[in-house]
């Protein structure tokens, strides 16, 4: 997707406006919707990965230490991971803080 929707001309569209680049919506940042963000106390993390399973965005990945962490580019701050974490690793804090 070289051009944004505002730059595309009618000639740029594929037949029937078909999109041929699978998953290109991943370029869209949803992180700025957030009013609260995740903070972590990884000393409690048992690396179970439940937070990753339950994330509606699918934006939680394992970091180099094997701990699970939300990608702030996408994380909308719903707080499901914090609520579901069995060892309470995650605390939601307001973005302003």
């Amino acid at each position: 997707m070289a051009k944004s929707e505002g730059e595309l001309t009618w000639r740029d569209l594929e037949i029937g406006a078909i999109v041929t680049e699978p998953g290109n919506a991943a370029q869209y940042k949803t992180g700025d919707w957030r009013s609260q963000r995740t903070t972590y106390d990884f000393t409690k993390c048992i690396k179970c990965g439940l937070c990753q399973i339950y994330c509606p965005e699918g934006c939680i990945q394992q970091n180099d230490d094997g701990h699970f962490e939300a990608n702030v580019f996408y994380c909308k701050g719903c707080g499901i991971c914090a609520r579901e974490c069995p060892t309470r690793v995650i605390t939601m804090v307001l973005e302003e803080e």
């Binding site: 997707m1 051009k3 929707e5 595309l8 569209l13 406006a17 999109v19 680049e21 699978p22 998953g23 290109n24 919506a25 991943a26 370029q27 869209y28």
Partner: peptide, 11 residues
């Protein structure tokens, strides 16, 4: 998942 010209689908 599908505002033109994007897609969230890889299938």
């Amino acid at each position: 998942s599908s505002p033109l010209p994007t897609t969230s689908w890889k299938v």
